[in-house]
Simulated assay, not measured.
Amino acid sequence: MTDTIHTFIEQYGLIAVFVACVAEGETAAILAGFFAHQGVFVPWQAFVAVFLGAFGGDAAFFLCGRRFADRPFVQRLRSRPGFDRAFDLMQRHPALYVIGNRYVYGFRLVGGVAAGMSGIAAPKFIVLNAISAFVWTMLFGGIGYIFGLGAEQIIGDTLHRHQRLLVGLAIGIVVGLAGWYASRHFSRRAATVGDRG
């Protein structure tokens, strides 16, 4: 069973990494770095998949905000908690916001739309988005890569296939739970701020 899962990850894992990094992809980026260290993915391919997903996701949401602001999908994103705050920050500090938006869990989807609806020029957004996506890729992919190294140091040898999967699963669960908690915390905070306003 573990061999089948391992083979599936080897064949389709990079596609899953790309798709996951289009939205909130911290977990996928960390797992990509971990599996790159373990030789499941070719390292440069893993980091490229993370970068393209991160860059492409924000570019797509920017395009939605810029060209399709009246569509139901975008209207739903605009009604999410935190959108008004994101739009206000985007208006006041556009460059800093585009670079830092992806690091605030739960803001990334609404942030891309807010950027698209703002007055920032598309070429400027693309450059800033590329810089931000590159740094984000190196940070979270690097964390996963270091996890891979640390796991080997703890176990004392190259990880076997089933150990790779178990460690990868543990990483995914821990990061996913941390992200869920952070998203819930920031959503409640945004709602509280909105009620006060």
Rank of each mutant, 00 (worst) to 15 (best):
R164I: 15
G168C: 04
R196I: 06
A133L: 05
L139N: 09
G156A: 07
G144C: 04
G142T: 14
S132M: 06
G179P: 12
V174G: 00
G142S: 10
G156N: 11
G141M: 01
A133N: 03
H160Y: 14
Y181E: 07
R188K: 09
A178L: 02
G172P: 12
A151W: 03
R188P: 14
G172A: 12
H160C: 13
I173K: 08
S132K: 05
W180S: 14
G156C: 06
Q163N: 12
L149I: 15
H185D: 07
F140E: 01
F140T: 03
L139C: 08
G168M: 03
S183Q: 14
A191S: 04
I146L: 09
I143V: 15
R164S: 10
T158V: 11
R164C: 12
R196L: 06
H160L: 13
G144Q: 00
G144L: 00
R196A: 03
G168T: 05
R184W: 08
M138L: 12
T158K: 02
Y145S: 00
G150S: 07
I171S: 01
V175T: 04
I155Y: 09
R164M: 12
G148D: 01
A178D: 05
I171V: 02
A190M: 10
I154A: 10
I155T: 07
V174H: 02
L177E: 09
G194R: 14
F140G: 03
T158S: 03
S187G: 12
V175C: 02
R164H: 10
A178C: 03
V135Q: 07
F186A: 03
G142K: 07
Y145W: 13
G142V: 11
R161P: 07
